[in-house]
C-alpha cells in the first residue's frame, strides 16, 4: 500500500459565508414550482388537444367561441400584469400608498377576469356545452377552469399580502420578497393564459 499523495487542501476561493436570505430561497422555490406547474398545464393541454375533436352532439368550438369576449378577458389579464409590475415597483421605492392602490387594481382586474370566465362558462352551458356533454366540453372546462382556479388563488394570495400590510404596516425591504414571489406567480398565470388563448381559442377558431 503506497502512501497517499501529499496534497495541500485549498478551498475554492470563497468570500465570507452567509446563509441565503428567505428572498433567495423563496424565489428559487417559486421558480421550481412554476416549472413544475408548466408540466401540469402541459398534461392538461395534451389532454385538450387530443380530446377536443370529440364534440358529440354538443356545440363545436367554432360555434361557441366568442373572440371579443376572450379578447376582453385577455386584455384584462394583460393589464393586471402591468399593474402588478407597477405595484411591485412602487414597493421597491417604498411608496406604500401607491403599492396598495396597484394591489387593489390588480385584484379587481383578476376578479374581473374570473367573472368574465364565469359569464363565458354559463353562456356555454346554456348553449348546450356541459362538461359531460362531450369530451371537448370536459377537456375545455377542465383546462380553462384550472387556469381560472389559478387566477382565483392568485387573487387570494394578493389579498393575503394586502391584509399582511394592513396589519403589520408598510412592506419593508425585508418583506419585499413576499410581494415578489406573489408577482412571479401572477405573471406566470398570465403567461399560461397566452398559451391557452392561442391553443384553445385562436387555433380552435381557425381549424
Amino acid at each position: 500500500m503506497s502512501a497517499p499523495e501529499v496534497r495541500t487542501l485549498e478551498a475554492t476561493p470563497v468570500g465570507p459565508y452567509r446563509l441565503p436570505t428567505p428572498a433567495e430561497n423563496t424565489k428559487l422555490g417559486i421558480w421550481v414550482w412554476l416549472a413544475s406547474d408548466c408540466a401540469l398545464f402541459a398534461a392538461l393541454i395534451a389532454t385538450y388537444v387530443s380530446m377536443h375533436g370529440h364534440v358529440g352532439h354538443a356545440p363545436t368550438p367554432q360555434q361557441l367561441f366568442d373572440l371579443p369576449l376572450t379578447a376582453t378577458a385577455t386584455f384584462v389579464l394583460l393589464l393586471s400584469s402591468l399593474t402588478m409590475g407597477l405595484g411591485l415597483e412602487a414597493a421597491q421605492h417604498g411608496e406604500h400608498q401607491r403599492l396598495m392602490r396597484w394591489l387593489v387594481v390588480t385584484m379587481i382586474l383578476g376578479l374581473a377576469f374570473v367573472g368574465l370566465q364565469a359569464v363565458e362558462f354559463t353562456t356555454y352551458v346554456h348553449r348546450g356545452l356541459t362538461p359531460d356533454a362531450s369530451n371537448f366540453g370536459a377537456s375545455f372546462f377542465t383546462l380553462v377552469g384550472f387556469h381560472g382556479l389559478h387566477v382565483t388563488f392568485g387573487v387570494a394570495w394578493l389579498l393575503s399580502i394586502f391584509i399582511f400590510v394592513v396589519r403589520k404596516g408598510p412592506l419593508g425591504p425585508r418583506d419585499l420578497w413576499r410581494l415578489e414571489a406573489a408577482s412571479l406567480y401572477w405573471y406566470f398565470v398570465d403567461v399560461v393564459w397566452v398559451v391557452i388563448f392561442t391553443v384553445v381559442y385562436l387555433l380552435g377558431k381557425v381549424s
Binding site: 428572498a23 433567495e24 409590475g85 415597483e89 414597493a91 421597491q92 421605492h93 419585499l176 420578497w177
Partner: peptide, 8 residues
C-alpha cells in the same frame, strides 16, 4: 433582492 430592475 427587491432592487428595481424593471422601471416603469
Amino acid at each position: 433582492a427587491g432592487r428595481a430592475v424593471g422601471t416603469t
